[in-house]
Design a protein around this nucleic acid. Sequence first.
RNA 1: GCUGGCGUAGCUCAACGGCAGAGCAGCUGAUUUGUAAUCAGCAGGUUGUAGGUUCAAUUCCUAUCGCCAGCUCCA
Length: 653
Amino acid sequence: MDTIRVTLPGGKVMEIPPGMKIQEIVSSLRLNSHIIAARVDGVAVDLDRPLRRDCALDWIPMDSPEGLDILRHSTAHLMAQAVQGLFPGTQVTIGPTIEDGFYYDFNRESSFTPEELETIEARMRDLAASDLKITREEISRKKAIELFRSLGEGYKVAILEEIPDDTVSLYRQGDWVDLCRGPHVPATGVIRAFKLTGIAGAYWRGDERNEMLQRIYGTSWHSEEALSEHLRLLEEAKKRDHRKLGQELGLFMVSEAIGPGLPIWLPKGAMVRSILERYIVDLERSLGYQHVYTPQLARTDLYRQSGHWDHFKDNMYPPMRFEDKEELVLRPMNCPHHIMIYRRDLHSYRDLPLRLAELGTMYRYERSGVLSGLSRVRAMTLNDAHIFCLPEQIQSETVGVLRLIERVYRDFGFKDYWYRLSLRDPKDKSKFVDNDAMWDNAERYLRQALTEVGIAYKEATGEAAYYGPKIDVQLNDVLGHSETLSTVQLDFYLPERFGLEYVDKDGQRKRPVMIHRGVISTMERMMAFLIEHYAGNFPLWLSPVQVRLMTVTDEQKGYAEKVLRRLQALGWRAELDGRNEKLGYKIREAQMAKIPYAVVIGDRETKNQTVSPRRRGGQTLEPMSVSAFIELLGEEEVARELVGDKPTAGTAD
RNA sequence: GCUGGCGUAGCUCAACGGCAGAGCAGCUGAUUUGUAAUCAGCAGGUUGUAGGUUCAAUUCCUAUCGCCAGCUCCA
């Protein structure tokens, strides 16, 4: 048999001599140069790969997600080649692709400077221009270890020593070689549109006990246009950054004098926050939650008993002592306080579930490097609740919380989020309380609840709370970082620690189960998300200022004030710009302040007793009576939706 | 906490060893204006803080505080 049968994409079968390379098929078919790799029976391979058996072929074009991933991986190699050429003695470690880009970690005495980044980029362009062929080679693991040892690449040797396979693959381009699984683009000339985007330290193997390596980040695209579009989107995203908008819109501040991570809510931000608080408290009360207030300090012993002292001490402020009296700490969590409320009474099984909620302010010592605007702070107020329930109520209560989360996200228009089932790491039990049966049970209940609501989820090992597994809801911030917003945590441990009981039907005292849950997260983080989600354009119901009236000339001031009083009397957050300025100027300021309605009051309106509203997005409405305008506001507030804004309206500049 | 970068007027940014500047915002005056910026004038600073080098430091060095990116950690 002297030919093999290759099924091409689309079903056509081609007969080729065995050993023919995929690249030759690509050339013979005169396919465009955008094909940079292929899939053979579903497995991604280099174009350089010879075919020896009947198989099905599929192309991987450069602009497909998989193609971009390969391109970026090859760009990481190109960068490593440039770095090692420019800075002899620098060792390579790992260089994977990430969303929209890649990085490579190096071990080098000194750090890379921004100027060196440009030099590296220039060298990469040279290497790309020389269009070096990229070739794959398979050798035994033993030989590979020898090779990298002779090259002085200790990290590669360490990686090789952990690979179980006997055979490993190397990739060569020019005189440069790297250990890599591949696949890669056929030659460096394919790599055209790239940019090195940052330098940072990163611990070897992600462990802070290890030495710090030098990481260079970059991005790579199939065309210059795609690259500049990507960079433009990054710039756009920066405009939505809650730290920037929070400053511009006067929502919050952080004062160096007060302290890092201790945000100050300015009047406008405080207005949004109080609306959020009222919203969630009302909603929770309607679902059978009872709100309480408890102090932000407690005896250290309380936290010793709860286990926080053992498991959470690094995140707690040190205790304070007044003379020789009791020792107090700022609370890092609210649960022990709610547990004390539970313990006040002897509970019948008929009382359960007991749902205690609090907008609980708490303090956590976060390491300085992690603080960020409102999303990572040291003083925060959590939309917290603890559900004390019977074991047989776990699933229905968890389902109730999941439904509440879904309901709230709908109200805010959140669409881009995912559920994570956070489990303990069975290999590293030191971070978690030790009770295998408890963990297994809790995990099962959470899975059942997720299934019942029909929610898809990803599992994350090692992400659990110290007292139990949890369901987290992850949202991306505007810069692409995933953060937890909502959380549902199952806890068999604290009821045990505090000896919680209820009297069951049979008269026996039994242990209740606790569910810790947060829906709109901390007020701080929720605010950060909302600012970015709406790009500062809050929908009417959340806008700190909903309406700004503006006169055309002084003549209309009397009528405008009358309209203002009428709106304010009905609870609308309205203000009047009666300054002696041109209308265009006032409109512009209202637009930049992102106020939903700018309402023009000139001679015509005064004469007809009307108003002329203009929406934030630029839409001018026909003059209407004040009552009609109020009706319009009422409908929009109830709908809780954005009206008249472009979905990605950034700042006006 | 670690690696790197950056701290100049309320905000956004110049000046980079030789008298610290602009735009916006603020104040005063003129302008009475119809859907994204009217004009003029005035005022605004121990250049984050503390040391050091120098005849001279915003500029160079050291320490420290803060911010930013990333690592680690997390609501």
